[in-house]
Amino acid sequence: MGEPAGSDLVVGEWSWAPVEEIVAWARFWAGASWPMTEGVAIDLGVEHLGWSVDEQGEAVAPWPLNGRDLSLSRAYGAKDCHGFSFEVTDVMGSPHEQLDVEAQRLWQAFLRDRFTLLVRALTPELGEPTRLRESFQGRSMVTARWDLPDGGIRWDVTQSHQSVSAYLSSPATAAMERRSGN
């Protein structure tokens, strides 16, 4: 089946996670038995999704990106995993300082393209997302958000000026976020 074709602008020096693998991750975590501890989440990721564990015991995504860590979260002192985040594309800290004008244009086109392809691929799996536009430190971000029914997970894909990232919130955390208006 292969990855959906993108624009000609995404051919370049930047790397991204395969869309079909991220869709498989979303499917896997949507069907997982929650709650779970961070240790169980890491074990499941290693066993089923190609994760590895570095020498510090941190989860690492399988793709050749410059930001490969998976960031798992839990409340201080708690054992249950609240969710995790990971990069979908390479990360560029300050594109406006690191790239000339033409390269900045290509970088932004690359990010838009990866975001669009991922949202299109996730929609048949998770349903229509809610789209959010936010501003953070003077920079615009766009998020596609899926709140799965029946107390399921929340899956966000966000495009910023630095990267495209994905965020998963456990069912309990997603419910808390919804109650607080987020």
Rank of each mutant, 00 (worst) to 15 (best):
S140D: 14
M1K: 13
F28M: 07
T130P: 08
E97Q: 09
A78D: 13
W34A: 04
A103F: 01
M36G: 03
V10L: 12
S165P: 08
D43Q: 14
F115I: 05
P149M: 04
Q98T: 07
W25G: 00
D8F: 14
L106A: 13
S160P: 08
D147Q: 15
N182F: 10
I22A: 09
G181Y: 00
W51S: 09
L132N: 08
S160Y: 01
T123P: 09
S71I: 08
A32N: 04
A5I: 14
R178G: 07
E47I: 06
D156G: 01
L70T: 02
E47C: 06
A166M: 11
A109N: 05
G181V: 04
S165F: 01
I42P: 00
V60Q: 11
E38A: 07
D80W: 11
D100C: 02
S160G: 13
T143A: 03
E21W: 08
S140Q: 12
L106E: 13
G31E: 12
E177H: 11
Q98D: 09
V157C: 06
V11A: 13
A26I: 10
W25D: 11
P64S: 11
D150E: 14
R139A: 12
S33T: 14
F86M: 15
D80T: 05
S73E: 12
A24K: 05
D113Q: 02
V11K: 12
E38N: 13
E38P: 04
Q162R: 13
E20N: 11
S85W: 00
S163M: 09
M36R: 06
A174P: 01
L111Y: 02
R114V: 10
G2W: 00
A75K: 12
A175Y: 07
R154L: 14
F84S: 01
E134C: 09
S15W: 05
